[in-house]
Amino acid sequence: MAELFAQYNYVIVIILMMTGLYTIFASRNLIKKLAGLSVFQTSVFLLYITISKIKGGQPPILLEDKKYGYDEDGYALLDGPISVAAGDASYILPGPGSDVIYSNPLPHVLILTAIVVGVATLAIGLALVVRIREVYHTIEEDEIEAADFIYNLEGTAD
């Protein structure tokens, strides 16, 4: 039973990814295709972020070394190697002998920029859809193909 929950994140990511892929394949409306593309994209984000999660971890923002109090036996609640910065701030570092676990920051950085780039490229796709609609008066893929086919068949030279 326990193994079933050890890797369930990948199962969900795969389901979402295939849902997006199916929307791209099966629907012929261009805006719906773009919606499917975003679902696919978000599933990739989820894959990266779930991999970066560490059990018992916390957000990768270094904790300042304030006194976090003591437990009943007189031991400090949060303990670990401490780095003293130039000012008066000192931060609790992760590592052996440390109570604090931070999740992996690298996938966060990659996905953070990917999200903003994703919306910019989505805007390009939508702009193309708008221009297609203005020329063809439709955004259904098969109607566009039919119009192209007839146009090529009659071969109007202009």
Binding site: V119, A120, A123, L126, A127, V130, R133, E134, H137
Partner: peptide
Amino acid sequence: VMIAIFYAFGSRQPE
């Protein structure tokens, strides 16, 4: 860029 994209879509006349 975000405002530019919105202006571009918003000021296009719908047919």
